[in-house]
Amino acid sequence: MSWHDFAKLRRRRTYGAVAVTALFASPLLLLFTGSLREPGLPPVIAPPLIPDDAGFTAYHQAVSHGDLVRAAANSMIVAAVGVPLSLLVASLAGFALAQLPRRLTNTVIGLSVLAMTVPAAALLLPRFVLFRTLQLTDTLVPLIAPALIATSPLYPLIYYLAFRSIPADSYDLCRLADLTPMQTWRRMALPQVQPVTAALAALTFVLTWSNLLDPMVYLYDRATFTLPLALRALAAMDPHNQPVFLAGAVLATLPTLLVLGVAQRRFMHSYGPEGAP
């Protein structure tokens, strides 16, 4: 292949990449431009994509009508407690699975896979009964509780694979230094799988932050509403006032984009060619 052909191929790849970017970024861009329109106007046929009267009025209305500040605070409490807890559970379990005898490990992995096949909706009812018996409905506890299963049973398995890919010598080294499993986890293993932690932190955050099903079942008191639930109420209040609920959707989306951006940078971080897990 000549240099000329090579350059041509590269250029074609760039065109493709630009097209993909335009396609996948467009829903978010439309979400944003839609939220800039003046709320409360009668529907027009084919409004311009970038409105003439662009402004942030819809945001003011969304925040005040939807009580989004309180909802955002609730969501943040859930995320601030739930996400670290979830990562802790996942990495501890993944580490233990990588060290325990094969039979036990395989059993737990089998149960985890089974748990992944159970539809979330099928668990709602018994969980609802459980939390109601414990008088925990209308609190944020049921929303944090999934951290106990690491948000998704997939995540301990990912940690398990990551910990297993650390050379056996490193574990032997820690045993010779008389480290307890807990110390080995914290000092040797966890620092080496940092990119995995970054990726799972982002995924866990997105799942926790977006969770709609659980709040719909457990929360009735407006004071405890999380952002998705408050947004749903807002959209139900005036389904035709699109700029307002689009503004709410933008506000709900911003934190996830932020976390994803930060995590992506950490995700790329590794310890050179040898240290990459």
């Binding site: 010598d169 032997d172 080294l173 010779l176 230094a177 008389d178 000092r187 080496q192």
Partner: peptide, 29 residues
């Protein structure tokens, strides 16, 4: 258990921990 035997070992792969500096690797144990 290994940690109670007071032995030190050099592994074939050296088993240096990638997230630590040389100084921290040496001082690890």
């Amino acid at each position: 258990r290994p940690g109670q035997r007071n032995v030190s070992m050099v592994f074939q792969s050296y088993s240096l921990l990638p997230h630590l500096t040389v100084a921290d690797n040496i001082a690890f144990g």
